[in-house]
Design a protein around this nucleic acid. Sequence first.
DNA 1: TAGATTGTTAATCGATTAACAATC
DNA 2: TAGATTGTTAATCGATTAACAATC
Lengths: 222, 222
Amino acid sequence: MSVENKINKFKGVPEPTVRRMPSYLHYLRFVSESGVMNISAPTIGRDLRFDPTQVVKDLAYTGVSGKPRIGYNVYELVQALRNFLGFNRLNDAFLVGAGNLGTALLSYQGATNFGIKIIAAFDIHEDKVNTQIGGVRVLHLNKCQDLVQRLQIKIAILTTPVSVSQLVTDKMVSWGIEAIWNFTPTHLEVPKDIIVQNTSMYSNVAVLLNKLANKNIQQPLV
Amino acid sequence: MSVENKINKFKGVPEPTVRRMPSYLHYLRFVSESGVMNISAPTIGRDLRFDPTQVVKDLAYTGVSGKPRIGYNVYELVQALRNFLGFNRLNDAFLVGAGNLGTALLSYQGATNFGIKIIAAFDIHEDKVNTQIGGVRVLHLNKCQDLVQRLQIKIAILTTPVSVSQLVTDKMVSWGIEAIWNFTPTHLEVPKDIIVQNTSMYSNVAVLLNKLANKNIQQPLV
DNA sequence: TAGATTGTTAATCGATTAACAATC
DNA sequence: TAGATTGTTAATCGATTAACAATC
């Protein structure tokens, strides 16, 4: 195997593991409130309905090591998970498109800050520009490039209409945005070093409705 | 293998496939607007960045069959996907918890109805009760049981505070709710025939931040 | 010490990708 | 007909689960 290949062999933490990390953090915070100092993987697994071996493997990625028969130190885990999830860094983001969903996210994060802080929002409609939503100022999109570059913003939350999502994406990438949290149903075309995280309400609804339909089909068989 | 086992061998459509279905639908609607009548799996794959074989397999689940060298009939696919995704059925839902996220979802779906129709929302705070959000009436939670049963509602959207999420879930299940779209970070305990679809903003943020962090770690290696 | 739990290596399982024959 | 594409069967890949030795 060539050196080139070996370098490319670098695999980060598996995505399913990353997705479970916030669950562990939420659970461990809850557990630590009741004064529990140490916790074992089987206990976590029982409560969260995860396989105990999977819990062990997942937690190993935080760098925390446990003690046989005792388990893991809860405080240590919470800190390690916070660090793993990037809550200790500051993750400033811009939101583009202050329509229904954009407004929704702005109001939502007013209360809960889930690891990303929305610094400003952008829109082109006069009735939105220079207002505040959820404590965040809405500016005209033509101010975006300058601010992305001055504030070194790397994360953009995309909540524009579908009709302009690719166009806005292209511009933001050219301005230096490195990661796009895409809430539109559009498949965005981006250079390969740009990260796109698709969050589709549609996919989630699809899975739920499908399970519900299966349930009703399956029943008569039993 | 026992008969019991054979029955349990029933596997629905793989979840990853279900998650891709809305992408196909969105894409095909777009394509059909430009008057394209037939489309091949490789073309779809190229545009959506899916493996062509995967597209063929996914589309097979809709029941539509294509013609070699010609592809699939776009109109037929759109109809089949709409049907597959349950857009032709009416999927009425109740939303419980008209706080930040609840309000957000209510305002959002005002414009976009993504397969589920929110019929009413419920809360216990006097300042929310008997208001309207996004055209949906907010009622007191003590009216919920009666309405779930009268209207035969099967789907609940859970956007309560974490502190009451399990409690509210237990009640709704006892009232006859069959599927819960859970937006809280709580792991809900439910009877095994109840469907829980977790939609965690936290997980999505976690994946995005993790990719971003990896990117910045990996760069120096090159 | 005895035994529950960690941490690692192996087996399983399911989805993705590749190969290829059938077909229009 | 020739050849691109469907549709199916086989190979690969990665995550989950099982097995087990090390350890506190």
